[in-house]
């Protein structure tokens, strides 16, 4: 069992049965696990904000869901997260790659690395970074915190967690 299997398992243990996804290369393996799970409804989308809205609609159907995306896609969702989820107090649980960290040597990710947390802080959207497999047990608590706070919650997957040590 690899880390992507483990994340998928923790999501299942949390009761997640619907996932709306758009990949970057860090979360693509997790999306593959979701796609192969016959007990999890997989909704691939064409733009990340669609995943936010799909999960928001699923909330009212009494279904636990997750939106999976890259950090760049997350930044494109801020208007929808503010005017749908913050406006209506609809929780949405997001799993995103923590791009632009000091061990992510991709020039087109450096702005995401410097500004993503600042943007989330400005909106008062809670987040948590998972760096080790031992910490994946936090997923049920993170999901509950998302519900309790009635707003978007982002669980970031660090590079060393999903890609290994080498940059």
């Amino acid at each position: 069992m690899d880390v992507h299997d483990m994340i998928h398992d923790r999501l299942r243990e949390t009761g997640v049965t619907l996932a709306a996804t758009l990949p970057d290369d860090w979360v693509a393996p997790l999306i593959g696990r979701i796609d192969r799970d016959p007990e999890m409804r997989h909704v691939p989308v064409a733009r990340e904000a669609e995943a936010i809205a799909v999960c928001s609609g699923a909330f009212f159907g009494g279904v636990r869901s997750v939106a999976v995306m890259g950090a760049t896609g997350l930044l494109t969702c801020m208007g929808e997260l503010a005017t749908l989820n913050l406006r209506h107090q609809i929780p949405v649980f997001i799993v995103a790659s923590r791009r632009g960290s000091i061990d992510d040597h991709r020039v087109y990710q450096e702005v995401q690395g410097r500004r993503t947390f600042a943007v989330l802080d400005a909106y008062d959207f809670p987040y948590h970074v998972v760096e080790r497999t031992e910490d994946l047990g936090c997923i049920p608590d993170a999901y509950e915190a998302c519900r309790l706070q009635k707003r978007p919650f982002v669980l970031f997957l660090a590079r060393k967690l999903v890609k290994g040590a080498a940059a």
Partner: peptide, 20 residues
């Protein structure tokens, strides 16, 4: 009645339809 997220009512409805 969506108060915001212009463009995403259809995605919201799809999520509800998929859930139920």
């Amino acid at each position: 009645y969506m108060h915001g997220a212009m463009g995403f009512a259809a995605s919201f409805a799809l999520g509800l339809a998929a859930a139920r």
